[in-house]
């Protein structure tokens, strides 16, 4: 390779790796400052003196509630949609409208989902700012992620498996149920995990529909407001009267949130690689 080419290739490499260095810096900063704060007390106690002391238990539990609610709604709905789109719908007008809707949903800003949730669930249905409103809002936000990745998993199953089953006289649903889903389901769940990770980290949609900064007791029904990790971090970092004093708590909350979301994402990335190797058609 001539010298000039070598230099340019190195420049490309340098630019690419600078992204890696920046990501590394962010993660290192959070881990270095957050790790000393992590303790059993921090994870298992409610906050005291509006977050200046104590832990973040209610925020962890709140995030788990919100995410679970979103999963219960979004995963069945998303998987059913992807099955319909790949296995039933021909390229008709309905199919096109559904696809356009999914693309639109994928692009809707998260704060607009918040406005929508506020208008529909909080006010119109009268659910108030609650776990129910927040979960439903998050569910619709992650729906496109789940649909798109489930479709990918369904398409990866070879056509011959369907044709063989249909040729033997099985109905369409029997074919899907017995011959397609068993191979596609792992991939479908993997894609869904990515959506779940996103739901856990989002702040804007729950800002208007579910989150409260400080609640003395844990929620007891789906109509209660909740604390949530991303919202807790936002308030501690920007709205707290003693912002500098609570800095360690901010780092601790950030680390717990990052760990939670990365666990979801790394699991998905790992499983995806695993299934790609397992099923090679």
């Amino acid at each position: 390779m001539p010298k000039k080419e070598k230099v340019i290739t190195w420049v490309l490499r340098l630019i690419t790796y600078s992204i890696v260095v920046i990501i590394g810096t962010i993660l290192f900063n959070i881990v270095k400052n957050g790790l000393p704060v992590l303790s059993w007390e921090f994870l298992s106690q409610p906050p005291r003196r509006s977050g200046a002391e104590g832990g973040i238990l209610p925020a962890i539990i709140g995030t788990i509630y919100l995410v679970s609610g979103a999963i219960i709604v979004a995963i069945p709905l998303g998987m059913a949609t992807s099955i319909y789109l790949t296995e039933y719908a021909s390229q008709d007008r309905f199919n096109r409208y559904v696809r356009l809707s999914i693309i639109t949903l994928a692009g809707v800003p998260s704060i607009v989902f918040g406005l929508f949730g506020l208008g529909l669930f909080v006010i119109f249905f009268g659910f108030g700012a609650s776990i129910l409103s927040g979960s439903l809002t998050l569910a619709f936000m992650i729906l496109p992620t789940i649909i798109v990745s489930s479709e990918e998993a369904l398409r990866a199953v070879p056509l011959s498996l369907r044709e063989g089953s249909l040729a033997l006289g099985a109905t369409r649903w029997q074919t899907i149920y017995k011959n397609v889903l068993p191979y596609a389901l792992p991939g479908m769940f993997t894609g869904s995990i990515l959506g779940v990770g996103r739901a856990a980290g989002e702040t804007a949609p729950i800002l208007l529909t579910a989150a409260a900064f400080f609640l003395p007791k844990l929620p007891t029904s789906i109509f209660d407001q909740v604390m949530a990790l991303p919202y807790h971090l936002y308030i501690l970092a920007t709205q707290h009267p003693e912002v500098h004093k609570v800095l360690p708590k901010q780092y601790g909350t950030a680390l717990v949130l990052v760990l939670l979301v990365l666990t979801f994402n790394l699991t998905a990335i790992f499983l995806r690689g695993h299934f790609r190797k397992k099923y090679k058609w």
């Binding site: 990501i23 993660l27 971090l233 994402n265």
Partner: peptide, 18 residues
């Protein structure tokens, strides 16, 4: 590739905090 995917997963509130 996975490393850059990790970036996509860092919550926006954490990026803002940083």
């Amino acid at each position: 590739k996975p490393f850059i995917e990790i970036l996509a997963g860092i919550p926006s509130v954490v990026i803002g905090f940083f």
